[in-house]
Design a protein around this nucleic acid. Sequence first.
DNA 1: CTCAGGCTACCTCTTAAGGAGTAGCCAGGC
DNA 2: GCCTGGCTACTCCTTAAGAGGTAGCCTGAG
Lengths: 213, 213
Amino acid sequence: MSQTRILIVDDHPLFRRGVRQLVEMDPDMVIAGEASNGAEAVDVAGSLDLDLILMDLNMAKMDGLEALRQMRSNGIDTRIVMLTVSDADDDVVAALRAGADGYLLKDMEPEDLLARIKEAAEGKLVISPQLAAILAGIVSGGRAAPADALSALTSRELDILRALARGMSNKMIARRLDITEGTVKVHVKNLLKKLGLRSRVEAAVWAVNQGVS
Amino acid sequence: MSQTRILIVDDHPLFRRGVRQLVEMDPDMVIAGEASNGAEAVDVAGSLDLDLILMDLNMAKMDGLEALRQMRSNGIDTRIVMLTVSDADDDVVAALRAGADGYLLKDMEPEDLLARIKEAAEGKLVISPQLAAILAGIVSGGRAAPADALSALTSRELDILRALARGMSNKMIARRLDITEGTVKVHVKNLLKKLGLRSRVEAAVWAVNQGVS
DNA sequence: CTCAGGCTACCTCTTAAGGAGTAGCCAGGC
DNA sequence: GCCTGGCTACTCCTTAAGAGGTAGCCTGAG
């Protein structure tokens, strides 16, 4: 059985070096490549034969979340674990929803981190324990978007969201509100951005769970 | 400042004794009462002046989840932490959604458990670290749920419908169920026809309103 | 055995959806 | 006056979704 081939994506060379040293303490794992930003990562992810990608979130050229999304939409199903300093719930949720296979914080103990990386390579979903409460809060609240995100919406966007919560298409909404379908699309796009959601289906589900009506 | 008054609810006397010993190692906490099933717990929860309730899930007379719900609907806002052996995702999610302030597993290290109980008493939401991955999986989008009485649908179609109720795209569903996107489309098409709905958005909204999860 | 139903996978084709950008109009605030 | 935010309406472009069809494979009922 061959080694686990890992790509590390981070804009700090020293940090990459540290991770490389840590990972290669295990003879079963090898750093197959490095990238210093998301764009590079997307480029090389397809060509290198990888088993696991460790990627930072905050990077200059293209952040880790965007890189993750592009890889997934490029059909790359390599296991991808975010390795970052951000313990913001939005980041965690966004990464997991975008298809990350794990979310680890950089302040973990090295031995622990190494163990988690091995688990990730074996197919497990790995999460820093500190984030458990955050995820629990999200689950218990039944939300994907922050609860107060509703107040960020304009009244027109709320009209649209209510229509989405009834399963209506853009065309139906347009007829109902007596505006063009194109304008409905604009409102849908804007409210999706405000709520941090990716599709009308997510918006509809979220709205129903919020009791929007 | 007075002691934290705790009610322990579990149908195993020996386990209750163990918890009592552990908890009372801390002079700031005291076991104010014990109950051996959910019904008893609901009875005494109102009369004892409690700061925290530690409750098992699996009990003969009334299980912990039902007891939790009854207490909450009785207006009892005491902090309630589930202390159980079940690491089933359904149980975790159900408890948190029903208003639990924490979910701890019985196989935790005693010292760790004691620390978590103290945190819970202080108002924190506490979760056993082992459950992080489960919660993450739920947040990221997919998980099986108890069977349902939507008799017209096949089990696979129910899988798809549950995924729809979480707002997932065909591609995400395909990845999660390890089938092709084309096959997902087939299932979506068939379930839409069976349910008499016109789009995945309608199906998602309908499913959420039906309580499909 | 045959047959039906369920799951899988592919095909083609059309429409729906969504991102990014530009822009006009109108209200309210400074 | 100017400027901002909200609503409207386009453009161009890409991807997602859904309606048809065919078909192989497997399992359980008869």
